[in-house]
Write a protein that binds this DNA or RNA. Structure first.
Lengths: 224, 224
DNA sequence: AATAGTCTGTTGCATTTGCAACAAACATAT
DNA sequence: ATATGTTTGTTGCAAATGCAACAGACTATT
């Protein structure tokens, strides 16, 4: 346990998994769940595909990238997990013990690992936070489900241009502005949209030329 | 309430949402959740996109198709829900009140609607099944999350042939046989893979010619 | 300053795919 | 029996996309 430098108030108010759990309880709860925080450097691999998983991760600092690779070595970027969000929760809740994905640090980051299955398997059900934690998890899984639906909405488009537009539109809605930055490089965006990087650049160029969007590096603007 | 012809034992043992809930409890629980069963004819629209949703559905008979449509009118098939499985659960758990999808009856079918949000909002938490139901739901959402991951795996392939192969492979694994039937027509499969029907037929023909697969109507065989 | 490495954009070319139109097989209704 | 509609397969053509190779801008290291 290395929680000397953890601020329970910040955790309780920012991590949605801990909604309605008082910061007083948090210490003992984290202990019960075998919490461990680990630091990783930028680009370090946090979890390799097929590694065993027994914990879910909470991003305390930085952000991480969830990706997979097919038998041809083609990388597919599934999503980016930002500060205070959690990852691998579906796997531990569905008892999937081998990771189907690779997880990489996008920046220097700090991850708290929670042996969440304990809450179901061995935890004394009398503890105060037990049912609250499960209810929060149910809610988070439902939301993540909805987010995956959005990703499916992008990939279900038949042309690259429509995929790009759907991706940019979702970002614009999320940022509540027609001007916004995206968290992915060109290469990463191509792997996220499952397209060729050159084709992506070409299509972005055409769209700029036609006055539909404007962009420079990671800064985008929807004009139309 | 129209549960005269419901067999609680069958429900309790087949519907995963009711795992570890005794059939004795089921009656009062269903009442508490405002259960209603409704019948639909083949091809009838069960729920239209943008309709309000306050209940999750349990398929008691038949099967239903979840799809969406973009602004161009292009249909995208998201998934098929089979007997005893549930649908719309992520929306009610994430408080999404307008349906992002259209739900259609694939056969004549019978659906039980449950006002699940009651369990969180107004239910007396002392009731026996409360926490069990939430834990089951957490588990189901995690599994569905994993299933969506598989769909993403299909759509993330860059060529139609790879999408087809991934789809057939997942079906083969699910059915534990190299020979199997698929639940989708050609038209539906095209909309599921988000491809053109003619292109799908062409590619299937090529693959048969090359000796990779064999098929006739809905019956497929992986040869390689 | 020089070097190596990374990221983005560009372009020619071959392949894949979407689109449209048509044909054959089959089912359904009158 | 006829007519109508649905499903599947086929094919020519145009457009989109992947692939490969290269160039310029930028960064980090020595």
């Amino acid at each position: 346990m290395e929680m000397e430098n953890l601020n329970f108030n910040i955790l309780a108010s920012n991590v949605k998994l801990f909604t309605n759990i008082s910061s007083d309880c948090l210490g003992s709860m984290l202990q019960c769940l075998g919490a461990k925080t680990v630091s990783y450097r930028k680009n370090e691999i946090i979890l390799m595909i097929d590694d065993s998983i027994e914990s879910l991760g909470i991003v305390l600092d930085g952000s991480v990238l969830i990706s997979s690779e097919d038998f041809m070595g083609i990388r597919s970027i599934i999503t980016v997990i930002e500060k205070y969000d959690i990852f691998a929760e579906a796997y531990v809740c569905a008892n999937i013990t081998k990771s189907p994905v690779t997880i990489t640090a996008l920046d220097n980051c700090r991850i708290m690992w929670l042996k969440f299955p304990r809450i179901i398997q061995t935890c004394n059900k009398a503890c105060q936070f037990h049912s609250r934690l499960i209810e929060n998890m149910m809610n988070l899984l439902a939301i993540k489900n909805y987010q995956m639906h959005q990703k499916l909405e992008i990939l279900s488009k038949r042309t690259l241009r429509e995929k790009i537009l759907t991706y940019l539109h979702l970002n614009s809605v999320k940022m509540k502005s027609k001007t916004f930055n995206i968290p992915l490089s060109r290469n990463e965006l191509a792997d996220f949209l499952n397209a060729d990087r050159a084709a992506l650049s070409r299509e972005l160029g055409k769209m700029k030329e036609e006055g539909i969007i404007d962009f420079s590096l990671n800064s985008f603007k929807i004009l139309h």
